[in-house]
Computed example of a mutant assay.
Amino acid sequence: MRMIVRMFIVWTLGMLAACATGQPRGYVDASAWSANYTEDYIPRFWIQTVDGKDTGLAGVQVQEFSRGGKGGRECCSLISGVDQTIKIVWRVGGRQDDESQWKTYSRDVVVKGAMPTRKDAYNILMVRFFSDHQVEVEVIPDRGEPGDAASPRVDKLFYSQRVMRHMGE
């Protein structure tokens, strides 16, 4: 019994130490937001490490640009940060199509943006889908405090403005 108690104490102290030191260097805790600048309906996407391990961060029901062009906001996961490469995998299919007819695409993408400077920042990992099955990813640190202006890097689609964006903007 003492052995179990000791192991539990060691495990607890290890977890507390990990939390106290914060996230690993080069990683960011972020929520996934998605913007779609195509007429493809994206029922699902997920984020992996370059070697194919799931990060736990995903998104669903990313609307076509003509229908608003955005998906839900999915919280949160520790992911590779700016200037690191991640893999975006997504499904494209018609709303009435059987899932067996959907197509799957994946791209290795270098994360753009800026790393947060505040530990309590609310970070966004913006996943943007473009024509020809291209995708880009940007870390947007701290979207703004309540009452403050939102980050200008957040796509206008999230403010009900259908403004077309292009890769690299």
Rank of each mutant, 00 (worst) to 15 (best):
V28E: 15
K103Q: 04
F65D: 01
L16E: 03
G81C: 04
P152L: 03
V139K: 07
V5G: 05
R73F: 07
D120L: 04
D142E: 14
I4D: 05
V135R: 00
Y159A: 12
C76E: 09
T117K: 14
A18C: 12
G72N: 13
K53D: 13
S151V: 08
V111Y: 01
I47Y: 00
G59F: 06
Q48K: 11
K87Y: 09
D98G: 02
A18I: 12
P116T: 03
A114T: 10
K156A: 15
M167P: 12
T117P: 09
M167E: 13
Q101S: 12
M164S: 12
D40F: 05
S66D: 01
A121S: 14
A149E: 05
D54H: 09
F45A: 06
S31D: 10
G68W: 00
Q23W: 05
L13F: 14
I140T: 02
G168M: 09
K53N: 13
I79C: 05
D108H: 12
L57G: 01
I42R: 09
V62P: 02
V163E: 04
L157S: 11
L78I: 03
A18F: 04
K87W: 13
R165E: 06
D54I: 04
S131K: 14
M164E: 14
D98A: 08
S151Q: 07
I9H: 05
Q61N: 11
A30V: 07
T12A: 15
G168W: 12
S106P: 01
T38L: 04
E39W: 08
G56E: 05
G26Y: 14
S106E: 15
Q61C: 06
E136M: 10
R91A: 14
Q48P: 09
F8Q: 08
D83I: 04
R118P: 05
I4W: 09
Q23L: 11
G26Q: 15
E64S: 10
G56H: 07
D54C: 06
I86G: 11
V109A: 02
Q48H: 14
L157G: 00
D108M: 11
R95P: 03
Q84A: 15
R143L: 02
T85H: 04
T117Y: 02
V82L: 03
A121T: 07
I124Y: 02
M1G: 12
T49F: 01
T21G: 05
A18K: 12
V82H: 02
M115H: 08
G68I: 00
I9L: 12
D148F: 00
M164L: 14
A149R: 15
R162M: 07
L125E: 11
E169F: 03
K53R: 11
G81D: 02
G93L: 06
R25D: 06
A17P: 01
P116E: 02
M3S: 15
Y27Q: 13
Y37W: 09
Q101V: 07
S34T: 08
E64K: 09
D54T: 06
Q96G: 00
Q61V: 11
M7V: 14
G72F: 13
I4L: 07
G113L: 06
M1Q: 08
G26K: 15
K87E: 15
R107G: 10
E39V: 07
Y159R: 03
G22R: 13
F8T: 01
K53Q: 11
V89N: 02
E99D: 04
V109S: 06
M167T: 10
Q61L: 14
V135M: 01
Q134L: 12
F8M: 13
P43R: 08
D40C: 00
M7F: 13
D155W: 04
V111M: 00
Q48A: 13
